[in-house]
Write a protein that binds this DNA or RNA. Structure first.
Lengths: 195, 195
DNA sequence: CACATGCGTTAACGCTCATTAACAAGGGGA
DNA sequence: TCCCCTTGTTAATGAGCGTTAACGCATGTG
């Protein structure tokens, strides 16, 4: 992954601000004029960059799901020979990084999915499902006694735990990350022991 | 607490359906006509029972927060002489019951708070804060090594875990409840050990 | 019987807001 | 220099939707 050094394009500015606003007040709660104002242009000027408000949301949600899945696949590939526990730790770490660095997107992720066109919604759901199943596979390697339905529920529950970052205070990033990581592992351990 | 046996009043029907619809498609995503249709009357008929759409949301959110807090206080009082761990288990159990029995309300709880009038929002936040602090106190009794900020973060994270029920499949209620309970305790144990 | 009150109905109003129309300015290439 | 493409602007349009108006009809009570 190349680290970006060039200036963000206008499209990217818009997406970033739109994500923040959508997360703060919901998709319907934000007007196009506000989004425009957030990047210094006004209202209908956005239509030079996006087909419409829906298109912004779609691009955001598809982008999130894709990024999460891609990152998880990469970590899975990189940690090839490692112990299963280490792979799970890597997944957790990746998800925490994302939740801490892109809080607005995390909020959107499970809040505004319904507003998408059918095709986009299906795509996002498919990416999400792949991401979940990838986790389920790793969890079942670490805890062989756990059945598949229990593992899937546990993964969803841990996502809920990790995605709680928007509600958290702002102590040091490292402290928060460490706390969440330990809690996630502890939660998985608890189902692994009693399956 | 007296168990209701009489038929639900129209107001209650409306609140129940409104909660479901708001949770499914968001406050702005559902029209008054839909809410009316859900209880067999149409559109403006709702105004015989509520001052407006906002009033329904306000009553729902205040009701949720109050109910959660009241239940927690009751459990705290009932489990007076018990070990701290048992009290924490009781809180967890109460929250799980609520999350499983009133999924729509749980969803609303942290999704649509901003749409309230200032006074209502303050009230809800105050109730939520009391609920959190009550948990924080119990957690710190069970795990004396944990500092207050960490305990508060941990409580929020566990709420995220427990509130993940809307994303879960539907195995038996008991199985889901047991799984969530074990995971919540495991998550707390993980911060208690390494504080 | 008369009448108030509770609970609905449908029609109209008015506001918000996404989208489109019409127009302007900058800037790089032929 | 002359275009034309990009990227804006403001004004107009049109739909959706919360709310209110005006009216009907039961029911129980004096």
């Amino acid at each position: 992954m190349a680290t970006r050094t060039d200036a963000p394009t206008r499209r990217e500015q818009i997406l970033k601000e739109a994500a923040r606003l959508f997360a703060e007040r919901g998709f319907h709660g934000v007007g196009v004029d506000e989004i425009g104002a957030a990047v210094g242009i006004s209202g209908p000027g956005l239509y030079r960059h996006f087909a419409g408000k829906d298109a912004m949301l779609a691009e955001l949600l598809v982008g999130i799901s894709g990024q999460l899945l891609r990152g998880a696949k990469r970590r899975l590939a990189e940690a090839d020979g490692e112990a299963p526990g280490a792979v799970l730790d890597s997944l957790i770490e990746g998800h925490i990084d994302f939740a801490l660095d892109d809080r607005p997107l995390i909020t959107l992720h499970d809040r505004e999915l319904d507003r998408l066109r059918d095709s986009d919604r299906k795509l996002v759901r498919q990416l999400q499902r792949q991401y979940v199943e990838l986790w389920v596979g790793v969890v079942r390697e670490v805890y062989p006694a756990v059945g598949e339905p229990a593992a899937r529920s546990a993964v969803h529950a841990v996502f809920g735990l990790l995605n709680s970052t928007p509600h958290l205070g702002r102590p040091s990033r490292a402290a928060t990350a460490g706390l969440l990581h330990r809690m996630a592992r502890g939660a998985f351990d608890a189902v692994g022991g009693a399956g």
